[in-house]
């Protein structure tokens, strides 16, 4: 502690001593290095390679080289690990699924042309590297049609599958008798019978359903019905009101005379919520005349179009205006598939 005169024994180690510090100095002096330090043995310089390894330039070069190597090798490694080339694993999840015609208790290799069949008590899982996993649910028949890095195509002949994928859009494709489903980075279930009746349910990301020249992008939370004879149902959100769903089914697959359609459309528009404008916008892809006017008017009443988008433009089917109006729904971007990485987690 400094004295009033400014003398500080702890700092200066001279002058008037502080008893407590002196006591500690005396007590601890036994540890002090006394006398000259022990003589050093022969002094040796670092070898040239040690000196090189310590040099800053060498370390910078080494790190830079390692970084370049990683950058060069990473795409190749990712491609080898993430995208299987010739075959993938099919695992038994329950019962004894048949893989390539043989009952399997554990797992089997599945190559292009391979077939996975499940009965009422069995389930199998197809693991495609880091691309994703497909669970073949009971009473299903699924064929691996094509397998190469960047393209994995399957054919669901009947039954139901559940898929979780993380891959660039259109890497993973499932054909059904009714339509083709293109994965856009997502999780979904798809079911069908031999004639093409079925259902696509998207739980995360987006799926594109395609039939001939018709394409429908279906977001998470929505479903689309498939019907034999090349009929794709308008996608709708599963939580839509019952009246809305019934009217939509009638419009998609019911009587097509003007009176029946007019009544169904009235019910549909009356039951629609803002979220259901997604379905109205999908219907506008094919609707004409009075139906088109009613869809636009009700749709813009529920979800107003942004500035610059006109009623006339929407009625004309102006694609830029339609896109701007679709964005008002806030459903996200199908292209940002990598944000859905959680989907591949079990």
């Amino acid at each position: 502690m400094p004295t009033p005169e400014g003398h500080d024994y702890l700092w200066e180690a001279t002058g008037e001593p502080e008893a407590e510090i002196v006591r500690l100095e005396q007590l601890l002096a036994r540890y002090r290095q006394t006398g000259p330090p022990r003589a050093l043995p022969a002094l040796e310089r670092a070898s040239w390679w040690e000196a090189l390894a310590w040099s800053r330039a060498f370390r910078v070069c080494a790190w830079a080289g390692a970084a370049v190597l990683v950058l060069v090798m990473a795409p190749w490694v990712i491609r080898r690990v993430a995208y299987p080339r010739n075959s993938c694993d099919a695992l038994c999840l329950a019962g004894t699924p048949r893989i390539n015609g043989r009952s399997v208790l554990n797992s089997a290799e599945l190559a292009a042309g391979g077939l996975v069949e499940t009965d009422s008590s069995s389930q199998a899982e197809i693991r495609i590297g880091l691309v994703g996993r497909v669970t073949v649910l009971p009473n299903s028949r699924m064929r691996l049609v094509e397998m190469r890095p960047g393209r994995y195509r399957m054919a669901l002949e009947r039954g139901k599958i559940s898929a979780r994928t993380l891959a660039p859009p259109f890497t993973f494709v499932v054909d059904t008798p009714g339509a083709t489903a293109y994965d856009v980075g997502c999780a979904f279930t798809l079911e069908t019978d031999e004639h093409g009746s079925g259902l696509l349910r998207v739980s995360s990301g987006w799926v594109q359903l395609e039939l001939d020249d018709r394409q429908i992008l279906i977001p998470a939370g929505a479903v689309s019905l498939l019907r034999p004879g090349g009929n794709l149902g308008t996608p709708y959100f599963e939580d839509a009101p019952v009246a809305f769903r019934a009217a939509l089914a009638s419009l998609d697959f019911g009587p097509q005379d003007d009176a029946a359609r007019g009544a169904a459309l009235a019910e549909l528009l009356a039951a629609a919520r803002p979220r259901d404008v997604f379905s109205l916008q999908e219907m506008l892809r094919t609707a004409t005349g009075e139906e088109r006017r009613r869809l636009v008017d009700r749709g813009t009443a529920l979800v107003p179009a942004p500035p610059g988008v006109t009623r006339a433009g929407l009625l004309r089917g102006n694609e830029a205006m339609m896109d701007a109006w679709r964005r008002q729904l806030g459903l996200g971007e199908p292209k940002r598939w990598w944000l859905d990485w959680r989907d591949i987690l079990p």
């Binding site: 702890l10 700092w11 200066e12 180690a13 001279t14 510090i21 500690l24 100095e25 007590l27 601890l28 002096a29 036994r30 540890y31 002090r32 290095q33």
Partner: peptide
């Protein structure tokens, strides 16, 4: 007692430990 005091100093934070040992053990001034 010296060992005990040294043990207490060693348990202090690095900056305090070093300066106190240099001062109290090695006898160096500030």
């Amino acid at each position: 007692e010296a060992a005990a005091v040294l043990g207490v100093i060693r348990a202090l934070p690095d900056a305090y430990r070093e300066t106190l040992i240099l001062r109290l053990v090695e006898g160096m001034n500030g």
